[in-house]
Design a binder for these strands. Structure first.
Lengths: 185, 185
DNA sequence: GTCTATATTCGGATAGAC
DNA sequence: GTCTATCCGAATATAGAC
């Protein structure tokens, strides 16, 4: 793997773990085994490198989630597949985490991958809800967009509850609660 | 207001806006109009001051929420009251935000107010669900604890979606979605 | 492309005068 | 209680040699 790739990958890791403010160029260089000159040769600075890392994380997350949501099964099964997907609950979402950082939200180049990821995800799930209703698999209920936002929010909020409790259980509770409600109608 | 109080209040503000890593002692002193000597006289350092600020934020948040949840109305109405409560959506939750910060989660004195707030909130909402079912106001469904976790997660996750989109609308969508599901059975 | 040297400001705190 | 002085390392780069 090239030095450039190692820098990006290290930044992905550190952004996930420590956030944008908490991630220093020096820490990235050490994690990547690269010198300063190397980093500043390939990237103009921390924001540039972080933007590359976030774009890559967003692309990876989307590709993996697309596989899940485009798979076989009823609308309910595919949404349940998303909610029940294997996750490292205590680490949380490497994209959703960035939404808390004011420096990320304030920089369009940093916020764009975050915004696009969630816009896509909410839209995709809303589409599945609409398909499921058209096919008679899902009962009528809230607007597809509202339901989709609730589903995604349960996951993102579930991470908050789990980290607050220092225990993954509240995440799983929230998912079970959401699934039961989706199933009821 | 005493200098000590101004320091705590300034820290509450800055923690909410910038997080723990993003909040420096100097920024707190300037916001509070206090000198360094003053701050280090009243508190042993940044962690000590942050702990005091978080305890106060947790107490305030809990008192305000208690008012809402203990009010009159059916179980559904009180939970809806919590979900629909007036909020500054783009600022997010000053307690939930802290769960993302590894330095907060790693320090028991800092994590305790966060953990306790959510433990109380989930428990209180679960209790309302149980009461509502006993009174025949709410249909059967998921475990009260699961439903409560989902409700709280929708709010915390709704903030993430809103900040990612730079628009409060996804928060409101998620709340509408959750309310519609709560209502259906 | 990568290395080392250098620069500036900030973060987080201690010491001691008033 | 508050102020000023001082300290040391980290954060975020730039410059120029190899």
């Amino acid at each position: 793997m090239s030095t450039q790739d190692r820098l990006i990958e290290s930044t992905q890791e550190l952004l996930w773990e420590r956030g944008y403010v908490g991630t220093s160029p020096k820490a990235i260089q050490q994690h990547a085994g690269a010198g300063q000159g190397s980093m500043y040769h390939h990237f103009t600075g921390k924001p540039d490198l972080a933007a590359a890392a976030l774009r890559r994380s967003a692309a990876q997350l989307r590709a993996a989630t697309e596989d899940l949501l485009d798979g076989p099964g009823t609308a309910y099964e595919r949404i349940a597949g998303y909610l029940l997907r294997q996750r490292d609950v205590m680490r949380g979402c490497r994209i959703g985490r960035m939404a808390q950082d004011p420096d990320v939200v304030a920089d369009p180049a940093l916020r764009a991958p975050v915004e696009e990821t969630f816009a896509w995800l909410r839209g995709r799930i809303a589409g599945i809800v609409a398909e499921g209703r058209a096919a008679g698999e899902l009962a009528d209920g809230p607007e597809p967009a509202d339901l989709a936002a609730a589903v995604v929010a349960v996951v993102q909020g579930g991470y908050v509850l789990a980290r607050a409790a220092d225990d993954p259980e509240p995440f799983h509770q929230a998912v079970r609660g959401a699934l039961a409600l989706l199933r009821t109608p």
